[in-house]
């Protein structure tokens, strides 16, 4: 147990040194309060999010919606389910729903739906005030967040919105790059032929550039701030 606490402390320290803003929540209420406070402080009205068991547990989407923030799911399946209000709808009905939001006539074919969904998503990411994603684990040695996915929506939700919040389970901390590699090797991602998930993203601190003189360590092209919210247990 003390090992776990040590890893968590090290992770917090390193992530903060790299330029992320780290918050530790000991309860679900504390965690929700932090997110609600953040969106209020920063004047956030729209958020995009990727699949997150922690957000589910906190009922975060509903709490944000109640606070006046429009929350959009970014996995195509969840987004489509949202359009259908959670009901199983046939493809032609789904195509109609998508046509209504996209402003173009979408044929009831998976390829066409995928194409249009990507276009809509792109604008959603770029227009969002906040991206919410969940990391699979952190790396204590470097303060790095590791996210595994096949779809690519989590890395876009992490890169394009104005601010980015990563949720992290405080018990999911690897000690080193070597340990992280061991954890990753165990996960194939589930696509036949793939020995690893399609995208493994290591995020360390906040994006920077030194290319403009006088703006050293300034925000480059990703979010203006990186927030990490760690749930203690």
């Amino acid at each position: 147990m003390s090992d776990k606490i040590e890893l968590l402390e090290r992770f917090k320290t390193e992530a903060a040194l790299s330029g992320a803003q780290v918050t530790l929540a000991s309860s679900a209420d504390q965690a929700v309060d932090f997110v609600l406070g953040l969106v209020k402080d920063k004047g956030i009205t729209t958020a995009v999010k990727s699949a997150s068991p922690i957000a589910e547990r906190l009922d975060l989407a509903a709490r944000l919606t109640k606070a006046g923030v429009k929350v959009m799911e970014t996995s195509i399946a969840q987004w489509a389910a949202g359009l259908a209000r959670g009901k199983d709808v046939p493809m032609d009905k789904l195509a109609e729903l998508i046509s209504a939001v996209s402003g173009e006539k979408v044929p009831p074919e998976p390829e066409a739906i995928l194409r249009v969904a990507r276009r809509i998503m792109k604008d959603m990411y770029a227009g969002a005030g906040l991206g919410i994603t969940e990391a699979d684990f952190g790396i204590a040695e470097t303060g790095t967040l590791v996210t595994l996915e096949n779809e690519g929506n989590a890395r876009l939700a992490a890169a394009l919105p104005r601010l980015h919040l990563t949720l992290l389970d405080g018990t999911h901390i690897a000690s080193s790059l070597a340990d992280a590699a061991e954890l990753i090797k165990g996960s194939s991602g589930g696509i036949p032929g793939h020995k690893l998930p399609t995208f493994i993203t290591y995020l360390t601190g906040r994006n920077t550039t030194a290319d403009i003189p006088g703006a050293i360590f300034a925000r480059a092209q990703g979010p203006a701030e990186e927030y990490i919210l760690i749930l203690k247990a």
Partner: peptide
């Protein structure tokens, strides 16, 4: 810095989930 901010490991092309059972 200890690490580059974004390190992407990319293996092949990706895939989303299912819609309307497809």
């Amino acid at each position: 810095t200890k690490m580059t901010v974004y390190t992407s490991f990319i293996t092949g092309t990706g895939r989303a989930g299912a819609i309307s059972g497809t």
